[in-house]
Design a protein around this nucleic acid. Structure first.
Length: 428
DNA sequence: TCTGGGGTCCTAGGACCC
DNA sequence: TCTGGGGTCCTAGGACCC
């Protein structure tokens, strides 16, 4: 089995640093008045709650709940509400990660608000203290509170982090009494165990992390897959999931949005698809990538029980892998026209670029350099102008100017990167 | 009235080949 | 009429993550 190949290293120490209620913490940074108050941040389109302060959690607001369902609680408890501001969160995330890199050369940025850090070079004794230092430095330099969980595998450091969040002042080194902790750790909270797997495990009387740790490897692998088996091994302190230090480039790039209101005509759908296409193209160009394949999808609301549901997608190949917006739009419009059906109220549209690879290696066709050179200059000019003068300074007429379908953002804090950059840096 | 968005990895099964 | 067996590659869909 594949995980046998991983050598068990004595004294493996992996820290998981996780920002507490990250988006809420970002908003608080610019708005100290909401420090002790209940706060939530909403997803795009003000659709769902995706970040909650401790106080909001205590009121009973759940993660991922539709906003309209908790509006009454928001009113009653005077909860502060924000539309999400990803430009701001991205900037603060980069600052947090920069601080983390001062603690170890081996840092895996796992998500916008989480990183795994290899601390195996540390002595057993100083580990917990080091965790406290990490927490304090991030708080002092960036202003974001974090929790730090440390253990011998990634999966166990996730467990430690869970506990650090609730007690122990935000830092926990899980190196003793592990079984006791795992016995009180619900199976559905284990990293890598989602809804389906919890159901399966519970049916088989595996209710805690401890139960999974003691389940037979062959049984787990048979009932789930290799990932399930790796999770179980990691609970046994056998590292199976390596740290990914080098940020690998993405393999797919998806840009999609729900509309601010339902859309039924193809012109508006086309505008949306073209806009998403331009954004996706810009993203892969920023990473010096080209795409071989494009998928366009549209769908009506899956929640509207009174109307017929329609969802479809079309995938097309480019003759030559490209990052040229114009080429992409041509194919995207073609794909959209293939799947568009009259008389439906559409709720969402999106574009996925896949089979991405480095543009440097894109030499499979002799004509490529000639054709691409011209357009490259144009694309570079567009990207430069948009970075300098703001998004959509240059666009393409087909993307539309009115954008009546664009998403709602009624609770934006309107903090932008420009004003963020002008703020003083604390403590350096 | 109002239910996010962007990723990764794995597997089963079909297509195709000899 | 009888109609193998084994391999590879690709894709769609599912499950998971934050």
């Amino acid at each position: 089995m594949s995980y046998i190949n991983y050598s068990r290293r004595n004294g493996n120490k992996i820290a998981l640093v996780d920002c507490n209620s990250f988006y809420v913490s970002c908003e608080r940074l610019f708005n100290p008045k909401i420090e002790k108050k209940p706060v939530v941040v909403l997803s795009n389109n003000d659709g769902c709650v995706i970040s909650r302060s401790k106080e909001a959690k205590a009121i009973g607001i759940k993660m991922g709940e539709p906003y309209f369902k908790v509006k009454h609680l928001v009113k009653k408890n005077k909860i502060e509400v924000f539309s999400s501001n990803y430009a701001l969160y991205g900037d603060l995330s980069r600052r947090v990660m920069k601080v983390l890199k001062t603690f170890s050369p081996q840092v895996e940025i796992y998500s916008i608000d989480e990183a795994f850090i290899d601390l195996s070079f540390m002595d057993e004794k100083g580990v917990e203290e080091y965790g406290k230092e990490i927490r304090e430095k991030v708080l002092k330099w960036v202003g974001i509170p974090t929790s730090v969980g440390i253990a011998s595998t990634k999966t166990l450091s996730k467990v430690a982090n869970h506990i650090a969040k609730k007690e122990r002042n935000g830092v926990m080194y899980l190196n003793k009494n592990i079984d006791l902790i795992l016995k009180n750790f619900p199976i559905e909270d284990v990293w890598g165990v989602g809804k389906q797997l919890s159901k399966f495990y519970k049916k088989n009387d595996i209710k805690t992390a401890y139960d999974l740790k003691n389940a037979s490897s062959t049984w787990v692998k048979k009932g789930t897959n290799v990932l399930g088996a790796k999770t179980a091994m990691e609970l046994r302190e056998v590292p199976c999931i390596n740290l990914q230090i080098d940020q690998e480039k993405r393999k797919n790039c998806c840009v999609s949005r729900s509309f601010g209101r339902k859309v039924d005509n193809i012109n508006e759908l086309e505008e949306a698809v073209i806009t998403h296409c331009l954004n996706a193209a810009e993203k892969i160009r920023a990473d010096s990538q080209v795409a071989k394949t494009i998928t366009v999808f549209i769908r009506t609301s899956p929640f509207d029980k009174n109307k017929r549901y329609y969802s479809n997608s079309r995938t097309l190949d480019f003759p030559i892998a490209t990052s040229n917006s114009i080429e992409m739009i041509k194919q995207a419009v073609k794909a959209l026209n293939d799947i568009y059906k009259y008389d439906y109220k559409y709720q969402k549209a999106g574009v996925i670029l896949s089979n991405l690879k480095d543009s440097k290696n894109n030499q499979e066709n002799l004509l490529t350099p000639l054709l691409e050179d011209k357009s490259k200059t144009l694309m570079k000019a567009i990207d430069y102008t948009n970075t300098k003068y703001g998004r959509y300074a240059i666009s393409i007429a087909q993307a539309g100017l009115s954008k009546g379908w664009k998403m709602r953002r009624e609770h934006s804090s309107k903090i932008d990167t420009a004003s963020f950059d002008s703020l003083p840096i604390i403590g350096i």
